[in-house]
Structures are given as structure tokens and as C-alpha cells.
Write a protein that binds this DNA or RNA. Structure first.
Lengths: 197, 197
DNA sequence: TAATATTATCTAACAGTGTTAAATAGTTTA
DNA sequence: TAAACTATTTAACACTGTTAGATAATATTA
């Protein structure tokens, strides 16, 4: 009976191996360079075995995206904790978001690329989205204003547009020097934050 | 000798047919749905003939992008003409940019998508980029401030981030109602414009 | 006009992609 | 040991971009 557990553990391990291999390939060759045969090669199996663990290639990418969200959320929460008042927290969080994008370029494109899902997606009900984390803090900044859901969303989108737009420019390479963009980012954020109260 | 001209004209026509077919497919199935065999089918040739007119698939996409720039530039120039003072012109231009993105969704993704080139690209030296058109007007707004090239670029990026970011959110679908986003857009633009002088 | 040269186009193939069905190898159960 | 079940692979399908070589159509020359 214990052998069942061992086998289950082994299966779980290959599943993780698949994801790890995929992640590595995506990091090295971009997510368009990912192929099932490359994954199979990395885990020393043949390609069809992957279908024993995932419905299709899309499912693997989704799982990777989910893992990305977990990391990003962790970063955001930590950034929030590092500051005392909500306004500062909000800036720290967006800077952490910015940092995540550049430390995980391929991952970010997978998560927020034009042809993938957007920031507000509800594909993983079990995973908290950045949206939740940010709006929470936005509400705190707005204090006793008691903003409606629509207003909050609107404010979030304003932040997100700037940050995501700036990241997009820089991810494709030929942008301004990084510190200048960071300045633009900070200016924009404080500008929007000022508009909150 | 005149037959040479006729043949050249015919060749030019098939070249255009290829581009038109590609454009149609991209519009209908998205740019990831574009394949050489589909193009060949549409123009009633076999696939390899395309290599008689373009170096590869990439070259076709680039040509399409170029055509997109021409249309966008026309729109931007017209928007500029429609207003009297530079600040109003700038807003009208960004709204035209916004409109272009939604009326040519697939095209916009091809032109400004994450894995393609960015707004500031110099891939087509013969084609004026939106960057030129916008910065020109930005300088006008700033009047006698005589801003440096860096400052102008920085300002342009600030505009572009917001607009491109907002468009990105909306292109993938599940955004806010369109009129609300348009309001966010206008607010952001006037905000940045105010910061110019 | 007939033979030759040139150009236009296609056929066939290669190496790659995601995906599926069927065959085989390995392990567990009766 | 035989049967049942599971894990894994082989082979194939329908695509993809791309290239080389054969063929058909046209233009040039004798």
C-alpha cells in the first residue's frame, strides 16, 4: 500500500520536472521557443508522456503563469510590509512589480503579454491576483472616501496602464536608460497617488 | 519592350495580392493564424511562390507593419490638423491613436505587441514614426522651454506608457466599459500635458 | 518558324510543431 | 505462473516555414 504513495510521489515529481524544464526553456529561449519535444528531451522521456500529466501545451503555460502569480504576490506582499503608510506601500508595491517584470522578463510576457491574459483575470480562482493586493492598498490610501468598486478599478487601471506600458517599452529593448524610466515611473505613480485624495 | 512593363505590373500586383491576403487573414484569425499556405491558397498559388516576392514570413509581417504605420501617421496628421492649439492637438492625436488601435486590433498587436517592435523603432528609415509626429507637437506645447532631446523622449514615453498600457488592457477583452477607459485616458493625457509647462 | 535561353511556377521533401491511437514494456494482482 | 493493469514508446497525422530540383510557360535568338 505504501508503494502506491511512492508511485504517486514519483508522478508528482515528473509533473514538477515537466514544469521545471518548461520554465527553464522559457527563460532561456523565450516562451515561443518552448516545445513539447524539448521538454520531453529535458526530462528524458518521449513527448506523448506529457499528456499523461497535462491536457495540452496550453495547460503547461497556464500552470507556469499560476506559479508566476504566486511569486509576484509574495513580492508584492513583502513590499507592502516594508513600508509604514499606505501611499508609500503603494509605491513600493509598484516598484516591486516593476522589478519582477525585469527579473522575470519571459515570465512577465507569459503572464501579461498582449496575447495572453490580463492583470485582472480570474482564471485561477484559488490564486489571489495582484488586482486584489493593489486595490486593497488603494482603498487604504483613499481612507474615508469610501470609493465605489468602479472608482477603485478605474484607479487601479490608471496605475497599471502606466506601469505596464513602461515595462512593455523596456522589455523589447531599445528604451531609455533604466534609471530614467524608473524616474518616469516614480513620477507617474506619485502623480496618480496624489489624485487619490 | 512594353510587355516588360506589363509583366512588372503583374508582379507588383501579385505582391500586393500577397499582402492583401495576409492582411485579411490577420484581421480574421489574428496574426498567429497567418500561414504561408493560407496566403498561397488565397492568391491561388502554391506556397513557395511567396519567396519570389518576400525573403520570408517575417518580411511580410514587416511590410504589413509598415503599411500600418502609414495609415496611423495619416490619422495622426489629420487629428493634428483638426485642432488649433498644440495642447488640443496632442490630445486629439492620442485619441486618434487610441481609435486606430481599436479599429485595427490585430494590426495594432502586430505593430506594438510585446514580441514585436516598439513605438520608437527605426526599422523603416523611410517611414515617419508616430514618435516624430508626437514629439513635434510636444515641443510646440512646451513652447519656449527649449527642452532637451532626453526630456522630450521622456515626456513622450510618459504619454505612450499610459496609452499603450490602457490599450493593452482593453485589447485582451475583459476591461472596463469603453467610455470609462476613454475617460481615464483623457484624464491621464491632460494630466501629463499640464506637466509640460 | 524552330531551337534555345530565361523565367514562372510547382512538386517533393526536410525538419520542426502539437496531438492522438495503437503497440509494447513493466509492474501489480489473482 | 497467468492475467490485469499501468507506464511508456513508436508511429502516424496534420500542420508549420523553408529549400532544391523538376517542369511548364514564355521570350529571345538563329
Amino acid at each position: 500500500m505504501a508503494s502506491k504513495d511512492r508511485i504517486l510521489r514519483l508522478k508528482e515529481e515528473t509533473r514538477n520536472n515537466i514544469l521545471d524544464a518548461a520554465c527553464k526553456i522559457v527563460k532561456e529561449e523565450g516562451w515561443q521557443g518552448l516545445s513539447l519535444r524539448k521538454i520531453a528531451d529535458a526530462i528524458e522521456y518521449t513527448a506523448p508522456i506529457i499528456y499523461e500529466y497535462f491536457a495540452n501545451k496550453e495547460a503547461i503555460l497556464q500552470e507556469l503563469t499560476k506559479k508566476g502569480y504566486l511569486v509576484l504576490n509574495k513580492d508584492l506582499i513583502q513590499a507592502k510590509k516594508s513600508k509604514g503608510n499606505p501611499a508609500e506601500q503603494l509605491e513600493a508595491m509598484w516598484l516591486a512589480y516593476w522589478k519582477f517584470a525585469f527579473e522575470n522578463k519571459e515570465m512577465y510576457q507569459l503572464m501579461f503579454g498582449v496575447e495572453m491574459t490580463t492583470c485582472h483575470m480570474v482564471a485561477f480562482p484559488e490564486v489571489q491576483t495582484p488586482y486584489d493586493l493593489f486595490t486593497e492598498t488603494i482603498i487604504e490610501v483613499m481612507g474615508d472616501k469610501n470609493p465605489s468598486e468602479d472608482i477603485i478599478c478605474q484607479k487601479y487601471y490608471t496605475y497599471y496602464s502606466v506601469v505596464h506600458g513602461l515595462i512593455s517599452i523596456n522589455l523589447v529593448g531599445n528604451g531609455l536608460p533604466n534609471d530614467i524610466n524608473l524616474q518616469i515611473l516614480k513620477d507617474a505613480i506619485t502623480g496618480i497617488t496624489r489624485s487619490l485624495n
